[in-house]
Simulated assay, not measured.
Amino acid sequence: MSTAYHAYILGPDGHIQNRVDVLCDDDEEATRMAEQLVDGHDVELWQGARMLATFRMKE
């Protein structure tokens, strides 16, 4: 059964610019998918009120 996760795209000021909803089977799959969203901005991965990871853009 898939679980809903939310990847938040952060702007330079640290505020949310966009949200990407993903359905994944587990935390590991969601983490891999969210990490791919890092493209010139930071990304936070959440599952409900639980923060799983923060991915920083490469400088």
Rank of each mutant, 00 (worst) to 15 (best):
Met1Ile: 05
Thr3Ile: 13
Thr3Arg: 12
Ala4Asn: 04
Ala4Ile: 11
His6Ile: 14
His6Ser: 14
His6Val: 15
His6Pro: 00
His6Gly: 02
Ala7Tyr: 03
Tyr8Ser: 07
Tyr8Met: 10
Ile9Thr: 11
Ile9Met: 15
Leu10Thr: 11
Leu10Asn: 09
Leu10Ser: 09
Gly11Asp: 15
Gly11Ala: 15
Gly11Leu: 06
Pro12Gly: 14
Pro12Thr: 11
Asp13Ile: 07
Asp13Trp: 04
Gly14Ser: 08
Ile16Met: 04
Ile16Pro: 03
Ile16Leu: 02
Ile16Trp: 00
Ile16Ala: 11
Gln17Trp: 07
Gln17Pro: 00
Gln17Tyr: 01
Arg19Tyr: 00
Arg19Met: 14
Val20Asp: 07
Val20Gly: 00
Val20Cys: 10
Asp21Trp: 00
Val22Glu: 03
Cys24His: 04
Asp25Leu: 12
Asp26Gln: 04
Asp26Ala: 08
Asp26Cys: 15
Asp26Glu: 12
Asp27Trp: 01
Glu29Gln: 13
Glu29Asn: 02
Ala30Thr: 03
Ala30Ile: 07
Thr31Gln: 02
Thr31Asn: 01
Thr31Met: 07
Thr31Cys: 04
Thr31Leu: 11
Arg32Leu: 12
Arg32Asp: 15
Met33Thr: 10
Met33Ile: 08
Ala34Phe: 05
Ala34Ile: 08
Ala34Pro: 07
Ala34Val: 05
Glu35Asp: 14
Glu35Ile: 03
Glu35Leu: 08
Gln36Cys: 08
Gln36Gly: 12
Leu37Thr: 02
Val38Leu: 08
Val38Gln: 03
Asp39Gln: 10
Asp39Met: 06
Gly40Met: 09
Gly40Val: 11
Gly40Asp: 14
His41Phe: 11
His41Trp: 10
Asp42Cys: 11
Asp42Met: 10
Val43Gly: 02
Glu44Pro: 01
Glu44Ala: 10
Glu44Trp: 08
Leu45Pro: 01
Leu45Lys: 02
Leu45Ile: 08
Trp46Tyr: 13
Gly48Phe: 02
Ala49Leu: 13
Ala49Cys: 05
Met51Lys: 15
Leu52Ser: 05
Ala53Thr: 04
Ala53Leu: 01
Ala53Gln: 05
Ala53Ile: 02
Thr54Tyr: 01
Thr54His: 07
Phe55Lys: 08
Phe55His: 13
Arg56Ala: 12
Met57Cys: 09
Met57Asn: 08
Lys58Asn: 14
Glu59Val: 10
Glu59Lys: 12
